[in-house]
Design a protein around this nucleic acid. Structure first.
Lengths: 114, 114
DNA sequence: TTTCATACCTCGGACGCCGAGGTATCGATC
DNA sequence: GATCGATACCTCGGCGTCCGAGGTATGAAA
């Protein structure tokens, strides 16, 4: 289990990055993250929905209700231009921090996967 | 200014990594971090000391009072074996998350500095 | 009709940074 | 000898955040 603070730091960039690949909805996002991380990240919906609402409040994503083929109500989220910009910034911040950590860590070769 | 959550996520690994390079004390650690990050990280002592105390409470660092040449009281911290292990774990966690993010980000070459 | 998977939501506890505030000493300047 | 800035430590409280627990609703299958 990854530490909470680390998860907290990654929540926004991950969500924005997923939505940057195309619109999606809550339940699907949770599964995408689970698969993508080989189970290392298993977010509950109680984690996800507040984040989505916050992002929407900031104007970084926009949502629309639609129906699935199975006649289920789904709220689809997609990135706004502001969200695109925010993603780029989150990325830059992450790489900044990563660079700082690499300076401090005499990286063992087996961990040096870019 | 880097986001608070990202800073929060990096606080422990950075502190442990700095102390892994040799013992140090609060004020010096703040300056080391400032220099190391080219000013991107400017922690106040109100941030630092509680973290140090927590690490000590967990047995990851040990402290001893000593005098500087200028006759000032300083509390020197150094890593315990448990702290070494904790650092390795923090490192592993960070790289786990980094790998997940890289999967999501079609990395622009200019950001791909390992 | 019960169960399971899908699909959304909210609340409250717990945790952790960090600004603001406090104490104390040294060296230099006025 | 008084004031100032740098050094050096500390604590408290507000704020933001995850996330477990709780709630509602529908479709399909057993």
């Amino acid at each position: 289990m990854l530490p909470k603070v680390l998860v907290a730091a990654a929540v926004r960039p991950i969500m924005l990055a997923i939505l940057a690949q195309g619109e999606s909805y809550g339940y699907q996002i949770i599964q995408r993250i689970h698969d993508l991380s080989d189970g290392k990240l298993a977010w509950s919906d109680g984690t996800l929905y507040p984040v989505l609402h916050r992002l929407e409040g900031e104007g970084l994503v926009r949502s629309t209700w639609r129906m699935s083929e199975a006649k289920r109500k789904r709220k689809y989220y997609r990135l706004t231009p502001a969200g695109q910009a925010a993603l780029a910034q989150e990325q830059a911040h992450w790489f900044d921090m990563h660079a700082i950590l690499l300076k401090l860590w005499p990286t063992p070769p087996h961990l040096a996967l870019t």
